[in-house]
Design a protein around this nucleic acid. Sequence first.
DNA 1: GCGACAG
DNA 2: ATCTTGTCGC
Length: 240
Amino acid sequence: MAMRPCAAVSVLDRSAIEHPWDLAPEKARALQSRLAQHVVCADAIDPVGHIGGVDIGFEDGGDTTRAAVVVVKYSPEGPPFEVVEQVVHREPTRMAYVPGLLSFREVPAALGAFAKLETQPELVMVDGQGIAHPRRLGVASHLGLWLDLPTIGVAKSRLCGTHASVGEHRGDWTPLEHKGERIGAVLRSRVNVKPLYISPGHRISFDSALTWVVRCLYRTKLPEPTRLADRLASRRGPIN
DNA sequence: GCGACAG
DNA sequence: ATCTTGTCGC
């Protein structure tokens, strides 16, 4: 199977790129293809002291977008991890949900939340796909590119690609592929629960993406960073 | 043309 | 994602 060629390690100069967030679907798709060229799916990670979890929720019948970011202190001893910071950022929703264009709807708010963060994590896990996307630019990749941080896509369902059946034991996984390319892995994070779709977002390899997610698995289907962000985004968890 | 389709 | 109550199971 063809391994997806990764762009050379280089920092994208965001200030030099024309990037409106309210593009028409056709324009947005074209921009995704361009940006995907800058995604790096090889490890370029600093020592991980803190891990961030990101998720987006909506209010006012969808008129308001609510971004939640939770930062936990990583410990080699494993979870549970100490929560060191939680941020919620709200702003008007920019565009409707269109399959494949999720990042244009969620990344702006996520960036707003990161701007309010005091403790910047060295690794970020995002609720959604990384490169396991038709044009290889899921929300995790798009966000990672704009934050210039290593990110991992942790999705609860499939957007594209095919895969063999996944083993039933915790930790079992099978590769996810699309058009002859490896785009991620389907992971059984818990027994008797639908598997997770893991893919590199930016600045991380397939192996590391999977390894980090497994390291953050505790007692639920989702890894801790994403589980905590999910609770915060859906206003069920602590807003302390 | 007919389905599939992250959150 | 969100709208919504109770309910089955570990």
